[in-house]
């Protein structure tokens, strides 16, 4: 019962945040909604017993990544409300709608084809995403972290290193892009005043 209450509350937070991201005109408000959405996901992780993942979710996504978003928004002074009645790219909306429908269909298919409806607390999503009907072994927190680390650094070491390399390349790329010669200096602009 308590699981259902937590699930409903966190779902409301996640969905409200997600709607806020696409409906707010102001990029800063949208970024704030994104944080709310990440928080809802973190609550879901905790209710599933994945404390480590929940905190990593907040540290990495809620903390670092959205801070960077906001930093860029503020530094570039693009924090004014935008006119979105025209499509930025042609066909963008149609393809976004199409992929949204497809992802929705995949998730629904996963839930109904897996034959598990999640009637027990703690069952939500597990079978739905993976489609597996096998027994999920519950872990304690310490085992969770230790197993995660062990798996990451032994079985998936290649993927781990590749990700590291990818991030390094991205960093170098960003530096190269920023340091193109003759570019004008960045101007710190005043916040959202143009449209008001």
């Amino acid at each position: 019962m308590a699981g259902v209450v937590v699930f409903v509350i966190s779902t409301v937070i996640v969905l409200a945040g997600a709607l806020g991201v696409i409906l707010y005109r102001n990029p800063v408000h949208a970024a704030l909604s994104l944080i709310a959405s990440f928080f809802g996901v973190a609550i879901m992780f905790i209710s599933q017993g994945a404390h480590f993942l929940a905190l990593v979710q907040i540290v990495v996504y809620g903390g670092a990544i959205v801070v960077l978003f906001l930093f860029v928004i503020m530094l570039l002074g693009v924090d004014r409300e935008e006119d979105i009645s025209e499509e930025p790219f042609e066909g963008q909306r149609v393809s976004a709608l199409l992929s949204g429908v497809m992802i929705f269909a995949m998730l629904m298919g996963g839930i109904f084809l897996s034959g598990r409806t999640g009637d027990e607390a703690g069952d939500y999503g597990q079978a739905a995403i993976t489609g597996s009907t096998g027994q999920v072994v519950p872990l304690t927190e310490e085992e969770d972290v230790v197993q995660l680390g062990h798996d990451l650094f032994t079985r998936n070491i290649l993927a781990f290193e590749a990700t590291g390399l990818l991030l390094t390349i991205a960093t170098v790329g960003a530096v190269v892009l920023v340091r193109n010669r003759g570019a004008e200096d960045l101007v710190v602009d005043e916040p959202g005043t143009a449209s008001r």
Binding site: H51, L55, V56, V59, G62, V67, G192
Partner: peptide, 28 residues
């Protein structure tokens, strides 16, 4: 809290929002 010390990192990264948004929202 289990994984407690990570909670500190999470909270300190959230505390930044207070400062960032205060500065941004002041409109000056």
């Amino acid at each position: 809290i289990p994984s407690g010390i990570l909670f500190f990192l999470a909270m300190s990264s959230l505390g930044i929002y207070g400062i960032m948004l205060a500065g941004w929202s002041s409109g000056s």
